[in-house]
Each structure stands twice: as C-alpha cells, then as structure tokens.
Design a protein around this nucleic acid. Structure first.
Lengths: 329, 329
DNA sequence: CTGAAAGCGCTTACAG
DNA sequence: CTGAAAGCGCTTACAG
C-alpha cells in the first residue's frame, strides 16, 4: 500500500481507512487520522480489491445473468441494478445466456469461479429446476423479471397486466382475439397470457387453443407467430403480444397480410418500451417498472447477503392506451 | 487450494495446472500430472482469480464503458465483446456513462480501482480530451463505435455509410433534404452527416445549415428534432436520421405532422437494428456490423495487452433499401 | 496510540 | 521430479 510514505505501518493506515467517522479515535490519534486521510485522497488511493477479497473472503461482486442484453427490457433492468449496486458497495457484471440451459449453467459456473457473493438471474425458467441446484450449492440469489418456485424475486405483476389488456379489449368489443404468448418457460409470458385469458373467461369467452401461440420474444418471433395466426382461417379482430418487440413484429405481419393496425385489427404489447409511443401507429401497451425492478432486485440481494430474510416483490403495471387498439386515443 | 488431498505441495499442483499440454513433463511425473488433472476436474476446481491477480499483477479483466446499454446498438456491440473476450481468457464488465463527462471520469476511476488490465470505450468524445488523460496514465485502451484522435478504434465506416444514403436519396430525386444529425461530440453522427452532405455537395447541392440539426440518439430525440425541422417552413422531401431510433422518432413526428412516411416524405436511418424491417413502414437504413465491431474491439485490446502494435479498423457498411424511402422496395 | 504477525490463495524462481 | 520459500496487498486480532 503506497501510503507508507507516511512512515506508518500498513495496519495503522488500514485501520484509519476503515474506521467509521465516529470511531476514528479508536484507529489512531487525531493527527494521524488526519494525515492518512489527506494523503489517501490526494493520491486517489484505492485499496486493491483482489487483496481485500482474498483477505475478507467477500468479493462484493454480484453476477447478473440475462437472456440477452440487446433486449431493451433486460438492458433497462440491468441499468437499475447497476445504479443501485453502487449504493450498496457492490459491483456487478452481466452476461448473456440466450435462455439456453447449457449456457445458463456454464455462465453460472463462470460467475461462481469469479467468486461472486451472489447472483441475480433475469433468465429463470419457470420450472426452477436449475435454480434448485444453485440453491443446493448454497449460493445466495434473487430473480428479476421472471419468477420461479418460491425463490425471492422482483417482478411486474404480469398477471394483472394481462388482465388489464383483456379488459381493455373486451371493452372495445373484441370477442375473437389471439395471443402471441412468448416462450413457454418464462413466467412473464405465462402470467400475462393467463391474466388475459382469465379476463375473457370471466366475460364468458373461452379463448380457443389455436388462438394462443408461443413465440420468441423478439420482433422476428412476433412476426412469424402473427403470420401463423393470420394464416389460420378468419383473422381475429385483436392480437395481444406479450411484449412490445413481439408486438412490433405483429405490426410487420399485419402489414404483410394487407391489414392496417388500429383500423382493421387491434394490437397490444407489453412493457411500454420507448419505441412504443413513436411508432407510426402508436402501440397500446402495459407499462412495467423495468428500472425499478432492477433496483429492487439488487436491494433484495444486498439484504440477503446481510443475512436478512427477504420477500418477493410484485410491482404494479399500468395500461397505456394508444391508437393501435383505440383510434380515438 | 483444495487439491491438497493429493498429498502434494500446492506448488506442484499449480505447476501441473499451468503447464501447456506438450510440456507437462517439466511440471511433474506423468502419474502425478494425471492424478492432479483428474481430481481437479472431478472437483471442478477453479483457481481463485483474486489470488491469481494479486500474485501475477494481471487481472485479465477489462472494463467497458458505454453511453447506455439500453441502446441496442451498444448492447449488441457489447455482446460481441463478451463473446470474444472468453476466447482471450478475459472477463469484461460494462458500465453506463450516459455520455456525461463527469460520469465517464468517475466510471473510469471505478474500473481502474478494480484493477482492469485495459478499457474499451464505446462513449468516446470526438475531441479526445479525456482520452488523452487516460493515455497519459498509461492505461491500455481501445475505442469501439466512435473514434477519436489517433487512438486505436474499431468503427463502422460511417462516412461511407452516410454517402450511401446521400447517393440513394439523390438517385430518387430528393433535392431538399434534412439531417437529424445526432450529438455533436460523437464521431458516428459527425461522419455520417459529413458523408451524406458530401454526396450532395458533389451533386452540386449544398445542404443549408438549418437543415442539419443535432439531436439526441434516441427515439424521443429524433421526434423532437424532426418536429423542429417540419415546423421550419416547407418540409423537406427526405430526412436522414443518423440512427434507427432517431429515425423511428422521426416517424412519430412525421405522423403527428399529418404526413405519411414513404408516401409523402422519405426517411432513412442507420444501423439496421432488428426493428427496422418490422416497422409498419419498413425503414431504409445502413447495416453496420455491430457484433463484429465488438469482437474486433476486444481482439485489438487483447493484442495491445500482449504488447503488440495495433491499427484501427474501419468496417464496411451496407445500404438496405426499404419502403420508407422507396415505395417499390 | 501504533506496530507486528498471521494468513487469505495463488505463482514462480530456486533448491535439492 | 517435487518441495519450500517468498511475496502479491490487504485486514484483523493481539501485543505492547
């Protein structure tokens, strides 16, 4: 440690630098404390975190696994995580797993090899199979975006969001509707679809199985799946895509089919990404607190690392009506 | 190190684990090598990287600074970086700087405090002022996406891309055009605008200053700036927005103004993000090799860390014509 | 009030 | 062929 031009022992300096403001007197004399502090920030001294980790057996590092960072939803959640991590004295690093189980496993091993104190999974499979293994290894972790099993998670109330869309479309008189439902292993798509279907069921309308199709979460996935829906007999009068990208892909498919979004067929998405409002036909969608989800996620993990008990959180969504479902909007 | 149930000294084990396949005989006897290796992967042994870093004075860590990860362009570049980093035995971590100089400085300090071996900047200011400081500190770094000064960089040939759009619009007969030019400090926007303007200049058309407006790089920025262009006298017949998000924002502004993209006014973007093709009016844009940029960026840095000399790379863009400029497309 | 020792888990040059 | 020592930069309980 460079601060030995003070003629002090490392241990003294270390003590000073670690003392809480109010008990610095236990570390060294007032004069010494003063000198150490001054030189430290004059030199911009920063303890070597590798040495600290080695010594304290705590890295203050957390690994974050996401399906892909190029998905703006996850990127935004990660921004929240990173932002709040600093406030807890934690450093984070993200990695993409593309929702591929072998990659999830490999990346988990990688972050563990880097001796993280905990993990945030943004790519949980609803079956929680892999998570059980991780839990069995005693690794502290938290889920964001998707929930699974009883593991601590911070999610949007996706079921409620799906209901909101269902009730909205019902209110507009749509009775023949279809769902671009996302991947079958993600609680987001599952819950949004369930909430939507339940709203219809309560109105006495059972959405038939062939109207609910799984899909990838990106624009191309939404396009392909919507094209299949449109190719299947009479087109529905409304489509609920469980995220905005899939909805934008639905726009493309509707366009190719020769129909106009909003005028001929209603389309709704989910997440209210920044693009939704800017589309030529603005997209009706459900605002989910992505940033907040990230912040709360790391907060939860920080508390877990302190040994506290934590409870899952479910954040409230909000319906945003635009012209893609309601021309008057 | 746990592998001492072999009854061997740590140093022997370490030697074995670090020997290249062909010279393992210099590390230990054949039998010992065998035993060590077997137990190591039976136990999934992974050396503690903090200890290794401390000892070797090399962290194999690289810090990546980007304006924001929720910008799909940067997120995709980062995916390329992360992918290729593994092949070089490097680990990366990203952080957002929001293009704010104080944040860039703070985050640079932060990654340095974590003892990275090098940095990749995706947020370089064209004036290179801050980069000169970093270089003066002797930190190895590489730029991606934007270039600045003579520092090693991997970028798209943005000037050429801008030219391509200019020539395309000229070919379609557009003479009164406007540019949503992006932030004045980013080489991407600067070069794309310059290439575009030069194409027009060579055709004898000087684009007037009030037709070239700076803007934020996101959808809202594109919207606001386009609205200003449209409010300023007779609308141009075509708009070049220097990235796809700004172009999508331009879509929104054109729509609000009561015009139709493609039919009444041509709009072109840049980057060919996955959404471009899916828009209700598909977007003409320039494909830039984002993923590849990331891969090459970390390759360059890896070579720099080996002490090699490196040269900047400029990757070739490709024009993708769609209906937003050409209804026949 | 301050120093000195021990030790976190490695790697490397050296000794035997 | 293998062991033992030194040391990377810290922190912490202990001694004086």
């Amino acid at each position: 440690m460079l601060a030995e031009e003070l003629g002090l022992h490392v241990s003294t300096v270390s003590r000073v630098l670690h003392a809480k403001p109010d008990e610095s007197h236990r570390a060294a004399s007032k004069a010494t404390v003063e000198r150490v502090r001054r030189l430290a920030d004059e030199l911009g001294y920063r303890p070597n975190p590798h040495a600290t980790s080695l010594r304290t057996q705590r890295s203050n590092l957390v690994g974050v696994l996401v399906p892909r960072l190029s998905d703006i939803v996850l990127a935004t959640i990660y921004e929240g995580i990173e932002e709040s991590a600093g406030e807890h004295g934690l450093s984070t690093f993200v990695t993409n797993t593309r929702d591929v189980p072998e990659v999830q496993r490999a990346r988990t091993d990688m972050v563990l090899a880097r001796r993280v104190d905990g993990i945030i999974f943004g790519d949980a499979y609803a079956d929680a199979e892999f998570l059980r293994e991780v839990a069995a290894r005693g690794v502290p972790f938290v889920l964001v975006s998707r929930h699974a099993g009883d593991y601590p998670s911070v999610t949007c109330d996706d079921y409620l969001g799906g209901r909101m869309v269902g009730e909205h479309l019902l209110g507009l008189g749509h009775r023949d509707v279809a769902v671009v439902a996302g991947e079958p292993y993600a609680s987001t798509g599952i819950d949004r679809t369930a909430g939507f279907a339940d709203a219809y069921a309560e109105a006495g309308i059972e959405i038939p199985g062939h109207r609910i199709l799984h899909s990838r979460f990106d624009a191309r996935g939404g396009h392909e799946t919507t094209a299949r829906i449109l190719a299947d007999g009479e087109p529905p009068s409304a489509i609920f895509a469980v995220n905005d990208f899939a909805a934008i892909g639905a726009f493309g498919a509707v366009r190719d089919y020769g129909l106009r979004v909003g005028a001929d067929i209603a389309v709704a998405g989910f997440n209210d990404t920044p693009l939704a409002a800017e589309l030529p036909v603005p997209l009706t969608t459900v605002r989910s607190p992505m940033h907040e989800m990230g912040r709360r996620g790391i907060d939860l993990l920080a508390r877990l690392l302190q040994g506290e008990q934590v409870r899952s959180e479910r954040l409230r969504p909000e319906l945003v009506v635009r012209a893609s479902t309601d021309p008057r909007a």
